[in-house]
Every structure is written in C-alpha cells, then in structure tokens.
Design a protein around this nucleic acid. Structure first.
Length: 441
RNA sequence: GUGGUUGUAGCUCAGCAGGUUAGAGCGUCGGAUUGUGGUUCCGAAGGUCGUGGGUUCAAGCCCCAUCAUCCACCCCA
C-alpha cells in the first residue's frame, strides 16, 4: 500500500523539530520569567464542554470522536443524528479547556492566577497555506485582579520574546470599548459585531472593501461615513474629544492610556495604537493586541486581549482576565524566511569519531565514552574503514567537528580533529578536544 | 460548506495537434580517489503516467466519474 498522512497534518524531521523546540523553549523561558505557570489539559474533551463555544462555524470544525462498543451499537439502533454518535471531541483551542479547568479547580487556585499552555489543537478545516488541521497554540493568560497592569505586561511579553528571537515587529494595541464608542457615536450600537467583523478585514480588503462589507451587512450610509472618518484618527488623544459623548468610548481611551503609561520607558519594539485593530473573537471586551512582523509578508503572529466572564458558561461568574497567544507555526515561517535561526540549531551532535580499522575503532569507542562523560553530544560511526562514506555521513549530520583515529593517532594519543566548516585539521589530545568543544558553547 | 487549479521517477517539473521502446534537473547508490566530506567527471537503479470506466486502428494527452492536491471565499492561528 501507498503510505500517506491525513490532510492538513505534517511530519517534522529532525531539523524542523530542533528549530520548533528552539521557538517553544524561548517562549517558555519568557513566560516563566514573568511568573506564569504551566498547565496541560487532555487531548479529548467532552463535546458538551466544546460545543456552542465557537459559534456555528466552530461547531462544524470540531473533530468528533466516534462512540465505541455497546454505546455505539445502541446509538445506531434508531436513526441517529451526527450528534448521537459522539460524546467526545478533540480540543479546538486552549481557551475553553482553560476556562473549564479554572472552574473545576477553583478551590486550589489563588488569584491572580497566571498560567501558560503550549499544546496542539485540532480543527476539521479545509487546509491551505499556513493553515493546518493539527497545529500548536501557545497561550498565556492571567485571570483575577490587577488587569490594567497585566495588559501592559502582555505587551512586555511580546516585546521581550520577539526581541529574543530577533524578529522586528509592530505591537498594535486598541480597545474594544473604543470600537463600541465608535459604534455608539455612529448610532449603530446594535450592529457593533457586524462593524467589527468588517473592520477586521481592513488590511486585506482596504477601506473601500470595509465600506462595502458594512453596507452588505445593512449598516446605513451615514453611519458608514462616520465610522470611516473615525478610523482615520491616529492617536487616543485626538480621538478623545470625538468620543466624548460615549461613556464606553471614553473608558476605552482611558484604559489604553493606562497601558501606554506602564510601558512608557521599557520597550525595544514598536508599540502602536491602532483604531482599526478589531480582532475577530467576540469575547474580547477591553484592550486588544496584535503583533505584525516587519520585513515579511505574513498575517499576524500573535494576538489577544482582555475578556470578561470567561467561565460564566461553566457556572463561575465574574472571572475576567487578559491573555495573548503566539502563532508558533507562523513565527517559524517568519524566522525561516529571514534566516533568524542560530546556525547550531540545525544539529544537536557536536563531534563524530571516525576510525580506520577494527583496532582503532575499539579505541575510538573508549574515546567516545570520555567525551560523553564530559557532557558532549558525540557519536562513533559504526563501521570503520571507508573514510569517504564516513565523512559523507558527518557532512549530512552537520557535525561541527570530526575526530579521525588511525594507528598513528592511537599510539601517540594526538587525535586528528577536523573542523568541518573551515576544513582545517589539527592534532590534539582528547582532553584538549573536550575543552575546545566546551568552550565553544 | 461554496468556487476554481493540478495529479507523469523519492522530490520539482517537461512531454510537440492523440502515433513505435516515457524525458530532464535534483536526490539516492556505485566508481574516478584503500587516510578525508561539502566542488567536478563517469555510470547505474528507479514510472501499470492518481484510480475506474468510455471514445478511437491507436490515449500520458480527448470525455465521464471518483479520489487526492493546492488556491480563493467562509472562518481562523
């Protein structure tokens, strides 16, 4: 049979895994530095937990897990609908499982509770470029009190991480309340959601497209003009007088000002207020964030915001929070395109031993043990002899150093160390080789 | 879920308007070099042309179906 994998899924080779781990590890380091704690939730959740949380579209994209055994047989008896055949489904995102976790574990949690979570999620979507059915999400959230401060902290985390990875970004900030204020001033508070959906498409379809989209969604022409006009304003200060008649809008401006207040001195990346930032997800209620990479054509590589009543649906009222997520898969693509991965990410092996015959092969095996004991990642080619073949193997493994051991090397203890990048060779004692490699890292 | 694109060697693709034995580059393996890789040269292996049916004297090429793929929309990371 011809081998294959399900659509929208991928295999990752050694080099890719090493690079992905580099990103995940860097993300984790930053999360930990800001005091966030890890949690993990199960791959499968009850469908009752998942359905109805992502809208009609989301429900359709849930992977459902077929019932098994007697339960399945029983369900099949009387003309079952799709819903009768499954009671579990694959995790669709990390936010809903997190909300479920908080409600179930509230007695053990102290607030503010800061957690991060890096796990794969699954969506039965139609795959496309940069869009898969299985992909990782990296979420960081804080729930409880002190949220204005944490809003600023989210921007700091973005700033810190992308600086570490060497990606130049623009961190965009807006506030859902400002958008609500705009809707109110334009007299279309009822159509707030329609308005934000249209605005969200701005970078893709331009301002004219947004106007058409709003029109198609039944927003009156004079309101569209008003909205379009307000979207031109560049700073919170300029916007303030224009939204004065809306209490909500004024509150939004105040919140954004607070975030910038906290940030004033401490960012290296560009942080920018952007009224046109909308974010699709409807559960955001306050500040919203989005990160855009400079110098490369790519959708957003991070986003998030402030939300209220995350856990209400599971019966715990009044828990609000702020959180952001990192598009690790897209960050990978950006780093690949801009060649930002450190060169030694590609290989985990530091030295390869090569022997000429059976006797030296045995000697090389002993050398291997000492080098490994020193904590160096080392390997010995399994077959002695055929140098060409062994060197070729070294090359394909991207090993920085090769130690060649023949009869002369074995008797005087001076191994031939070859630098695979420069091609230079030197005779060195094993202890000096160890020092040299250790000094390199 | 809607609309379109493309399926030929492990990979990326040629294949004239239907006409004998199906082509290239890259990769793989072997050799030129029995103490040296990444360069060069020589050679070899590898394909029921996605699958099933139809039209034709003749189908990789035309028609129908089916599966897969990629892209756009919806939605989203």
């Amino acid at each position: 049979m011809k081998p294959g994998i399900p659509k929208g899924t991928r295999d990752f080779g050694p080099e890719q895994v090493l690079k992905r781990n580099y990103i995940f590890d860097t993300i984790k380091q930053v999360f930990i530095k800001y005091g966030y704690q890890p949690i993990e939730t199960p791959t499968i959740e009850l469908l009752s937990t998942l359905t109805g949380k992502y809208g009609e579209e989301g429900d359709r994209l849930l992977f459902r897990v077929l019932k098994r055994g007697d339960k399945l047989a029983k369900s099949l008896e009387n003309q079952p609908s799709a819903n009768d055949l499954a009671e579990e489904g694959l995790r669709y995102d990390l936010t809903v499982p997190f909300a479920r976790y908080v409600v179930m574990n509230q007695q053990y949690l102290t607030f503010p509770f800061k957690r991060y979570q890096i796990q794969p999620v699954w969506r039965a979507d139609r795959p496309q470029r940069g869009r898969y059915r299985e992909f990782y999400q990296c979420d960081v959230d804080v729930i409880g009190s002190g949220l204005p401060l944490y809003g600023a902290e989210m921007a700091q985390i973005y700033d810190d991480l992308f600086t570490k990875l060497g990606i130049d970004v623009i961190i965009k900030i807006n506030n859902r309340k400002i958008l609500a204020g705009i809707a109110e001033v334009a007299g279309i508070s009822e159509q707030f959601v329609d308005m934000t959906i249209a605005i969200d498409k701005l970078d893709k379809i331009g301002i004219e497209g947004v106007r058409q989209e709003m029109q198609a969604r039944g927003i009156p022409a004079n309101a569209i003009d008003k909205v379009a006009q307000l979207l031109q304003i560049a700073t919170p200060a300029d916007l303030k007088p224009l939204l004065a008649s809306s209490a909500t809008g004024a509150a939004g401006i105040e919140e954004v000002a607070q975030v910038f207040d906290f940030l004033e001195t401490s960012t290296t990346q560009e942080v920018q207020f952007d009224v046109t930032l909308a974010r699709g997800l409807n559960y955001y209620t306050g500040c919203i964030f989005e990160v855009q990479a400079k110098n490369v054509q790519m959708g957003s590589i991070g986003g998030g915001g402030r939300y209220d009543d995350l856990t209400g649906i599971f019966g715990l009222k009044g828990v609000s929070g702020v959180g952001v997520s990192f598009g690790a898969e897209r960050i990978y693509d950006v780093m690949e395109e801009l060649q930002l991965f450190p060169s030694d990410t590609a290989s985990s092996l530091q030295i390869l031993f090569i022997a000429f015959d059976a006797t030296t092969h045995r000697f090389a095996f002993q050398c291997l043990q000492s080098v490994r004991a020193a904590g160096i990642h080392a390997e010995l080619y399994p077959d002695p002899g055929n140098l060409k073949k062994q060197m070729k193997y070294a090359n394909s493994r991207h090993v920085p150093y090769v130690a060649l051991i023949g009869e002369a090397e074995m008797t005087n203890g001076q191994l031939t160390l070859k630098d695979m990048v420069t091609g230079e060779q030197a005779s060195l004692l094993l202890t000096d080789i160890i020092l040299k490699i250790q000094r390199r890292t």
